[in-house]
Write a protein that binds this DNA or RNA. Sequence first.
DNA 1: AACCAATAAATTGTCGACAATCTAGATATC
DNA 2: GATATCTAGATTGTCGACAATTTATTGGTT
Lengths: 221, 221
Amino acid sequence: MVFFKEQAVTSSDKTYFQLREEIVEGAIPAGAKLSEVELSTKYEVSRAVIREAINRLEACNIVERKANVGARVVTLTEDGLLELYQIREALEGMAARLAAQNMPEAEIYELSSLLEGQQDEVRQSHTYYQEAGDLDFHYRIIVGSKNQQLITMLSNGIYHLARMYRVQLGMTGPRVTTAYDEHKHIVRAISNRDGELAEILMRRHIQYSKNNIAVKLTKMK
Amino acid sequence: MVFFKEQAVTSSDKTYFQLREEIVEGAIPAGAKLSEVELSTKYEVSRAVIREAINRLEACNIVERKANVGARVVTLTEDGLLELYQIREALEGMAARLAAQNMPEAEIYELSSLLEGQQDEVRQSHTYYQEAGDLDFHYRIIVGSKNQQLITMLSNGIYHLARMYRVQLGMTGPRVTTAYDEHKHIVRAISNRDGELAEILMRRHIQYSKNNIAVKLTKMK
DNA sequence: AACCAATAAATTGTCGACAATCTAGATATC
DNA sequence: GATATCTAGATTGTCGACAATTTATTGGTT
């Protein structure tokens, strides 16, 4: 399910989307060098469009580039993950508070019934939330904040990085049902127009996610 | 005083910095079209480097680009300003809290003595804080947070936008001495390692700035 | 054998030209 | 006179080639 459409009009757009997906989903691993000529032959486009795509990836903090040397996929450190989730906590906590103020009733209802509809699915298969469901939920609340700069900031940069972490660290599994309940509580707070509570719950929700990943990280060492 | 150096190694870098300055400082006004050929003759570089510079400006939300049409300098709305300062409040509030945890004593001392040194200057000329002083203060606290992602996020994008607002709205003047005192209180909280208080004071400080600008805005209408 | 210098190969940065797309003006039609 | 269509101009998107810089290789010296 694609809930925020990035439509590629130009060739650079398509290349950028493809490259980003390959990196975020791990097909191009962390630390890999992005050779312009290699990629231009692979995607059958000019080096100019490859360069433009790489520039955009650099702006998203997905690749690092050194002048006259080249671009490499960023290697994600444990500290970097902590930093990223600190930012998410601040920004999405604010988003939840603003959503409680600004989100139209119709959007709240839509989000609420979306969660309701997934209730049975969650109870049965326990496979609900690792992916699209969680992302969808968070994105709808960001949009509900009605802060345009916040929306672009998160959907252009931070989310892709966060997903990249989860993929690279093999985070596909657990923490399913509790996250679902947390989501429900957040929606209820927004529905009650209780911004303060919504922020607290959202921050806590993101902290749980962070701790969950951090635990897995320490186990791997 | 330049306290965080962006050194331009390539020609695109230089063009990007120049273009950004001209836009942020108002030489190129809001809503202006950025013609690639025009700029390439003006700066005496190829269209390729102009395109790269424009792409970077787009990533900073300084220009908006439509495919096959062109790029225009963003026109700043009152709502946009509100949104921007909401984000600053969340992020820099967090930065202050983190700085109270992570900022080395040496950096705190340096910042503190910097403020002390400006005390007389403030009392006399009342011209202290409209520019570099304020920016320097905020940047040092961001750096003190030791959150690298936060540092790049703010210094690459948000600060330039915030400055652009102030320039376009003719915010050069007042709110000098009170801001100075606010800064001193924030530093004291950081020095005492009181993260909670530091965050509260920083948020309040940014709210004051926002209100100050918002008032001027309504007067202009 | 280890280290340094000079050269060769490869990669990125920049350029000018062509192709694709959009915008404006003129012409035609109702 | 207003609207729609077509054409001409201008602008952006894409391409391949050349220049500048970095990296790897070779050769020489201690």
